[in-house]
Nucleic acid binder design. Structure first.
Lengths: 219, 219
DNA sequence: GTCTATATCGCGATAGAC
DNA sequence: GTCTATCGCGATATAGAC
C-alpha cells in the first residue's frame, strides 16, 4: 500500500540482508580456499554471526554452496548466452558472442580465487554422491548445447560450412577452457588462457578477431 | 653372500613389504573415492594394520599420496616418453609415439577411479600450500616440454612444417586431455576422450591414424 | 623396529533458551 | 533471528607396549 513504483524492486527485510551477507562471505572464502577447507564457523564469523545462526538461513553447507554457484553462473552466462538466463531475450550476432566468450576467458584471469574454486568443484563434483553432482552435469550439458549452437551459427554467418561437427568442436572448446585453467593456476606467467582459446577458434575457421598476435605460451 | 645374480633385485625386508602393501591399498582406495574422502584408518584397515601403525611408515597422508602419484606417473610416462624415465633410452618414431599417446587416453577409460583422482588432485594442487603443488607444477612443465618436442618431431617427419607454434599446440593438447576427463567423468556415454583427442590432432595435421570414424560426442 | 591405545582437536549438525 | 550448549564423527599427535 505504499507509493512504490516500478517492477517490484522488493525492499529487503533484515533476514534477506543477512542471507545476502552470508552468501557474499561464503563466496569470498570459498574463492580463496576452496569448499572443503572453509568451515561454516569461518563463514559465519566473517558475516558477523555464529555458525548456528547461519544454519538458521541455510539447511546446510551444501545448500549454501549451491547458492554461491548459481549466482556466479547466472552472471557469467548473461553476457554470452542471454537466452538461457532470460528466455526470449534477443541474442547478438554469433561472431559478436564469440568475442564476448573470449573476453570472458580473459576476464577470468582477474579472479583466480573463483577460477580455482570452479576447478576444484567441477573435479570434486564428478562423484555421484557430491552435493553439486547433478548441478555440474546439467551445467556441462547446457554449455555443450549452447556452444554447439553458437559455433554452428558463427559458421552459417560467414558461409564457411562443413568444417566438421560443431558438437565436436564445442566439446573440445569447453574442455580446452577447463584444462587451461589448471595450467594457468599452476603457472600464470606461462599460460595465456585468452590467447590460447583465440588460437584454437582460429584453427576452426572461427576468427574472433581483436587478437594481439602474442603466442600464448612463454617459458 | 648368496648366489644371487643380476642387478641387485634387492630382497624386500618385512618393513618394505608392509610399505608396499600400504601403497597398494592407498592407490586402490584413492582411485575409488579420491584423496579427501579416504581416511588413514581406511587405508590401514585395508592393508591389515591400524592407522597409527601406518604412520610409522609414512610421516603423513600427504607423503603417502606422493608415493602413489609417482608410481603411476612413472608407469604412464614409460611408454610415451621413455627418455624422461630412463635417460638415454632410444625413442620410437614420433608418429608411433603419438599413437601410443592416443591409446593411453583410451586406456584411461578403464580406470575411472584413477582418472578422477588425478582430476581432483590437479585442481586441489593449484593451491600454493598443497603438499603436491610443486610436484604438479613440475609435472606440467615437463609434459608441456615433452609434448612440444613430440609435436615438432612429428611435423618434421612428415614434412608438414609451419603449422603454427608446437608449444601452443602442446599446451592446448594437454589442456584438452585434462578438460575432457571432467566431462567424461560426469557423463561417460556422451564423451569419447580418445576420439576427441584424435580429432584434435588431425586438425593440427598430426594424424595418428587408426581412427574408427566415430564422432566422439553423442547426446 | 613395529604397532596399539588413548587423548585432543575441529568439523557439521541439532535442540532449546532468549 | 540469534544465541549457548552439546552431540557424534573423523583426523591427528603422542606415550609406550611388544
Amino acid at each position: 500500500m505504499s507509493d512504490r513504483r516500478g517492477p517490484a524492486p522488493h525492499r529487503p527485510s533484515k533476514g534477506e540482508r543477512t542471507r545476502a551477507r552470508i552468501i557474499d562471505s561464503a563466496s569470498e572464502l570459498f574463492s580463496r580456499s576452496g569448499f572443503r577447507a572453509v568451515s561454516l564457523r569461518d563463514i559465519a564469523a566473517h558475516a558477523g554471526l555464529t555458525h548456528a545462526g547461519l544454519l538458521h538461513h541455510f539447511p546446510g553447507k551444501d545448500a549454501l554452496l549451491m547458492e554461491v554457484l548459481r549466482r556466479r553462473d547466472r552472471l557469467d552466462a548473461q553476457s554470452v548466452f542471454p537466452g538461457v538466463v532470460l528466455p526470449g531475450t534477443p541474442e547478438a550476432a554469433a561472431d559478436q558472442r564469440l568475442r564476448l566468450l573470449v573476453q570472458l576467458v580473459g576476464r577470468n584471469s582477474d579472479t583466480p580465487g573463483l577460477v580455482a574454486l570452479y576447478a576444484k568443484l567441477s573435479a570434486e563434483a564428478t562423484d555421484e554422491e557430491h552435493p553439486a553432482h547433478s548441478y555440474f552435469k546439467e551445467r556441462y550439458r547446457i554449455l555443450r548445447a549452447e556452444l554447439t549452437a553458437l559455433i554452428a551459427a558463427a559458421r552459417a554467418e560467414d558461409g564457411s560450412a562443413g568444417q566438421g561437427d560443431p558438437a565436436v568442436a564445442a566439446t573440445q572448446l569447453l574442455a580446452l577452457m577447463d584444462g587451461l585453467q589448471t595450467q594457468w593456476l599452476l603457472e600464470p606467467e606461462s599460460v595465456s588462457m585468452e590467447e590460447l582459446v583465440r588460437d584454437f577458434l582460429r584453427r576452426f575457421g572461427l576468427d574472433p578477431e581483436g587478437g594481439t598476435g602474442a603466442s600464448g605460451v612463454s617459458s
